[in-house]
Write a protein that binds this DNA or RNA. Structure first.
Length: 907
RNA sequence: GCGGGGGUGCCCGAGAGGUCAAAGGGGUCGGGCUCAAGACCCGAUGGGCUCAGGCCCACCAGGGGUUCGAAUCCCCUCCCCCGCACCA
């Protein structure tokens, strides 16, 4: 069993060592050379990176190395993202002995003896940063590691940088303050993140809805003007309310809420209302019986509607009082149906069902979609929770996007729900019929054993992405950028338009605090927008005591503001150097990553650059790639095809992996298919190329070049042009396909000439090796060294243009056609080994009236070409080949010969 | 619903008005090499006809159109994937 892996691994180690020792990827400012600044968004290091990341970063390496070959002074720095909650959450959960986390760690091959280190966020972050850095190095990335940075207060320089950035944004009035809902522990009043709750509730977010206040028809006791507040996500269905639901076994109270009287359940909901700035004072208890059977008034339609009992009403959710829309809400429909079987309420329930109103026109449904779906899914009762959830979701979704309001909606009639809902809600809130409210879809307890509620924080900070002037700049930036694939420009513009203000601060997460309001931490998308600039000076700024760094340093280095002499006195000459580095490297020439970042990170990146920097420093290019499938399947732990970068480089040769990564796809939104099952083929392919090079370099015939020599040189020339274009766009699959084309042409070349020309074979070796270099730099470095070329400073091959003045392409095409015809004939007449092949060229007169552009002009020319081809054909078919002319031939078939289409006779 | 990406032969995937039955893989079948397997090499792989390099029909989600000519352009329909946010 052949196995080249060990050989490759040795070569890889060797070159990685040399690169590191010689610092070949640590570029210095050099005004005499054009610069190229390439970045890939840093990964979030909550664990080991997998082959999906490898795909993105390896593509980064392809372009970095390609640009180096093209003579650019290339900088590729890399960092790590630690900001946000997942690291905090995971380390916390590990500390608590969470099984899932332990399982994950074990499946990643993390030894249990290391777990202790991971039990705090800092330890976790450092640990995985180290492992992932190691993987990046093993993959051979040409990163300038002097500039390796990571985020959050754990890195005081980064922290200073982010704070500077946010002060700038605030100065420019791009930060605003507002209120924002958050999930809180009801007793401790602290924000409850995923790690503060049981696993099964991770990821549950609040819902935004409204409370509609239904006045009670009569007094309760001697109090008048009491409201039944109904929380709903579907305010627009208020026109179809037939009744109100309360839980028959629930405990309710009469409370004074602000200046009104409300009926509310005596539950955690009171606390939640208070957390949302309602002033709630309990007056007295009210039993469900006191309410059931009474009537309320629909505040919009003024209909009189009964209050009825329903078991499905959860007195801890919403307001514990529910408006019932049987026409469009499956729960309500089935509950009324249930109630028709009840002695006491059957009449009222039937009446309610009769009063159902058609609200929306919805294709595929009758005027009462709730009834339709209850029947379709065969929902039997309100206990049928799963089906009801599904039904509700379906109807809600369909009605929201496709439901057309009927006449009853007045000015909204004819519109779709999503078109008018926002305005409608605004209106009923202004009319004081309703109020905005947030709640949870399920009530659960925090790890501190208290129920969790939604509260409003009043001092939440926002990035003002709604700012029209800011949007304008962002659009302008996109317009001026190279975005590949090009059609994504439109998508970028749309996202810029669509963004509203972004809540940029969280609590209890890893990150940098907001400099003027230190209880807030900048959330993870918001602290990672401008750091590409920070890379340019990071290797230098680290020499300065972070304690001493003030905004004046950044103002000077990035914006050229401040008194230079004074600043030099304060920080030293180094700030001059920093300014120079920044101005040399900036702007970013290419930033490349996956399509998942388009709508978030890349938009932020653009916005913030336009806010802080002058136009000439705005980002210049973005290249987007798709997801990665491994062997045609989505990579996931449950499918068992999950491969971490660490697994991969330990098991396979990295050059083979890099080759497969290149071959897996082009830029764009399509998913790439990384065929790990082909890793051996890739190794073999590369190994064969390696042996070919060292065995053939400087070998071969030395003589006048034949037409076929020129033809192959021409192929090389043409292909290298194509490959250049594909590299610029990171269409790596196309690059490899072009290399395969070269290989196929070489095969034909050898068939045609037997022994290759020395110049030609050398050219082939150099061209293909260099073109492969960005993809498989280790083995190519080895090749270059073995054949006596500089492996540390390779440059893009210069191939002289070979013009097609000899009709080289058509000549070869002609010969190939003759060859194909012969094999077709052999097949049809079922001869395997011909004794002789006669090729008879058309008689002279037939050439007289040829089309202008035909490449063969006369009989002599065709004869020459055929004589040249005779050896090739004879070798291929193992027989003699006679070339003759029609004039002299005695063969009957010779008469059929035409110019460019000689008669072929096989004996 | 909006926005984006798609639907090509057994499968994956290129092609973006003629040179297109449609590149390249893979699979399958047949053959070669081999003690044998793998690897490698050659051939076949829509249907029908034709024992001399050939011809005819069908065909690129479905339907219609533009054109001398459409997988490619236009219109309609159907289907699939992704996003629609406060999260890395």
């Amino acid at each position: 069993m052949e196995n080249f892996t060990d050989f490759f691994k040795k070569v890889e180690e060797k070159w990685q060592r040399i690169w590191e020792e010689k610092g070949v990827y640590q570029p210095e400012v050099d005004e005499s050379k054009p610069k190229f600044f390439m970045t890939v968004p840093y990964p979030y290091v909550s664990g080991l990176l997998h082959l999906g990341s490898a795909y993105t970063y390896t593509r980064g390496d392809f372009i970095a190395r390609y640009k180096r070959l093209r003579g650019y002074n290339v900088l590729w720095p890399q960092g790590w993202h630690l900001t946000g909650s997942p690291i905090v959450s995971r380390s916390y959960r590990l500390k608590m002995g969470d099984k899932k986390i332990i399982e994950d760690l074990i499946s990643d091959g993390i030894p249990e003896s290391d777990f202790k280190k991971l039990e705090n966020p800092e330890g976790w972050a450092i640990y995985f940063m180290n492992l992932n850095r190691e993987a990046f190095k093993k993959f051979g990335y040409s990163i300038d590691w002097r500039r390796e940075l990571y985020t959050t207060y754990l890195n005081p320089w980064y922290d200073k940088f982010v704070k500077w950035q946010y002060r700038k944004l605030k100065e420019k009035n791009l930060i605003t303050k507002g209120s924002h809902p958050v999930i809180l522990d009801s007793k401790l009043k602290i924000v409850i993140g995923d790690h503060d709750r049981p696993d099964e509730y991770a990821g549950i977010s609040y819902q935004e809805g409204i409370i509609i206040k239904f006045p009670l028809e009569n007094k309760l006791g001697d109090i008048e003007g009491i409201f039944l507040p109904c929380f709903t996500l579907r305010s627009e269905t208020i026109y179809g309310v037939t009744n109100i639901w309360i839980n028959p076994s629930g405990k309710y109270v009469l409370a004074k809420v602000n200046s009104e009287y409300w009926i509310l359940p005596n539950t955690i909901i009171l606390e939640e209302l208070r957390a949302q700035k309602f002033n709630v004072e309990i007056i007295r208890e009210v039993s469900a019986e006191e309410l059931i059977g009474k009537n309320a008034i629909n505040p919009i339609t003024k209909d009189k509607i009964p209050i009825l009992p329903a078991k499905f009403v959860d007195i801890e959710i919403g307001t514990g009082i529910v408006m019932s829309v049987p026409s469009d809400a499956p729960y309500d429909y089935i509950a009324l149906l249930d109630l028709t079987k009840d002695q006491e309420y059957s009449k009222i329930a039937e009446d309610c069902l009769r009063k159902m109103k058609p609200l929306f026109r919805l294709e595929g449904y009758s005027e009462f979609p709730a009834r339709d779906i209850v029947e379709k899914l065969e929902i039997k009762s309100q206990e049928d929770r799963d089906k009801l959830e599904k039904a509700t979701k379906e109807i809600y979704n369909k009605e929201f996007y496709n439901g057309i309001a009927r006449e009853i909606y007045g000015k909204y009639a004819g519109k779709k729900v999503f078109e008018f809902k926002e305005e409608f809600e605004k209106e009923i809130i202004e009319e004081k019929i309703a109020v905005r409210y947030y709640t949870l879809p399920i009530r659960f307890v925090s790890r501190y054993n208290n129920k969790v509620i939604v509260g409003i924080v009043e001092d939440q900070w926002f990035l003002k992405y709604s700012d029209i002037e800011w949007k304008k700049l962002a659009h302008e930036c996109v317009d001026g950028m190279f975005i590949y694939p090009e059609n994504l420009k439109k998508v970028f513009h749309e996202y810029i338009e669509w963004y509203k203000d972004w809540a940029c601060t969280h609590q209890k997460e890893l990150g940098s605090t907001l400099p003027w309001d230190e209880k807030w931490t900048l959330e993870s998308l918001s602290d990672s927008t401008l750091y590409t600039a920070f890379y340019t000076i990071y290797n230098l700024i680290k020499k300065i005591d972070p304690e001493k760094i003030g905004d004046d340093l950044f103002d000077y280095v990035f914006l050229g503001k401040g008194n230079k002499e004074e600043l030099i006195r304060k920080y030293g000459e180094i700030i001059e150097e920093m300014r120079r580095e920044f101005l040399y490297w900036y702007p970013v020439d290419i930033r490349t990553s996956g399509k998942d970042l388009i709508g978030n990170h890349f938009i932020f990146y653009i916005f913030h650059h336009t806010a802080i920097f002058p136009k000439e420093l705005w980002p210049k290019g973005i290249i987007i790639n798709g997801w990665v499938l491994t062997d045609g399947k989505k990579m996931s732990k449950s499918l068992g095809n999950y491969v971490s970068m660490k697994d991969a480089y330990e098991k396979y040769s990295v050059d083979a992996l890099r080759f497969l990564i290149a071959y897996s796809g082009n830029s764009g939104l399509d998913d790439a298919n990384l065929e790990l099952s082909k890793v051996e083929n890739a190794e073999r392919y590369l190994m064969e190329w390696y042996s070919f090079c060292i065995n053939n370099y400087n070998k071969g015939r030395v003589s006048e070049k034949l037409p076929v020599d020129l033809w192959f040189e021409r192929v090389l020339y043409e292909k290298i042009k194509v490959i250049e274009m594909e590299y610029e766009r990171l269409n790596m699959r196309n690059v490899i396909n072009s290399i395969y084309d070269i290989d196929n042409s070489y095969k034909w070349y050898i068939k045609r000439c037997g022994e290759p020309h020395r110049d030609v074979i050398n050219k082939y070796i150099i061209v293909k090796s260099i073109v492969l270099y960005p993809i498989v730099p280790h083995i190519v470095s080895e090749i270059l060294e073995r054949i006596g070329l500089d492996p540390l400073n390779p440059s893009w091959p210069y191939v002289e243009e070979v013009k097609d003045f000899e009709n080289l392409d058509k000549r070869e095409e002609y010969i190939r056609k003759i060859r194909d015809d012969i094999s077709k004939i052999l097949e049809i007449i079922r001869i395997e080994k011909p004794k002789k092949i006669k090729i008879i060229v058309a008689r002279k007169e037939k050439y007289r009236n040829l089309k202008e552009n035909y490449f063969i002009r006369n009989q002599e020319e065709e004869l020459n070409i055929l004589k040249d081809a005779a050896t090739t054909i004879s070798k291929e078919f193992y027989c003699d080949v006679d070339i003759d002319i029609e004039e002299k031939s005695s063969e009957e078939k010779s008469k059929k010969a035409l110019p460019g289409k000689p008669a072929i006779i096989v004996i």
